[in-house]
Design a protein around this nucleic acid. Structure first.
Lengths: 113, 113
DNA sequence: GTGTTACTTAGGTATATGTCTAAGTATGAC
DNA sequence: GTCATACTTAGACATATACCTAAGTAACAC
């Protein structure tokens, strides 16, 4: 059984905001600077930056600064932990897991720590 | 392309809390009454009920009252919208890479001529 | 019909979140 | 050097969230 993972808190919470999901949808199509990302959003830049910061803290986005421009991109396998948690629950619900699968899952989770 | 879906706000926000994820993990194994669900959580019942309410509003849990007992269960396809959004973004992200791979492949083929 | 159980409602508090404006810093263009 | 650009920091504020206690209601159990 998946134990409590504090990173999932930040990850799912980050996904719970429409502005942040739109940022991710944009970044799925390729990297972009802060101002490019902010342009479609009718919001002061510091407010917008807070959203970017949450996405980074959640491990969904990475960024690097070159000169005065910060470029953001989707983190590698950004959505993997969230998808994994959801799939595990679905599988348990659908009754697809037998005891052996459960055992393997736990083992792999332990090793990832 | 996924449009802005207010239900995803509630769904992902609901998933962003560890108490609520634990409730869902419990319900993935079968329905339960409010007090059964609350038992492992060191929390006043009204506080706990708020979590259940958010899960219901998010469409992740359904409940029915029989007598004085309320029984909760995972909603059918509870996680489908969340999984769908995540998969769509992953596919767009991976599609972008594929396209880049294609481009590189073509380039190398051209050079071999 | 009295007490116990299983919630439910009401109301309060502390912290977190999402927004803003104003002012600061660092870089690039001229 | 001067000015515009692209963030960044600081501080304020309103609402939302996560918790609490206390009191209410609606079934059962006797």
């Amino acid at each position: 059984m998946s134990k409590y993972d504090p990173n999932l808190d930040q990850c799912f919470s980050a996904l719970g905001d429409p502005t942040r999901r739109l940022i991710l949808q944009r970044l799925a199509r390729g990297e972009a600077s802060v101002s490019e990302l902010a342009a479609p959003h009718d919001m002061a830049l510091p407010s917008f930056m807070e959203h970017l910061k949450k996405l980074e803290v959640a491990g969904l986005v990475t960024s690097k600064k070159q000169g005065r421009t910060r470029t953001c991109e989707l983190a590698p396998d950004a959505f993997a932990p969230a998808k994994k948690w959801l799939s595990e629950q679905s599988e348990i619900w659908e009754g697809r897991l037998d005891r052996f699968d459960d055992y393997v899952k736990n083992l792999m989770q332990e090793r990832q720590k």
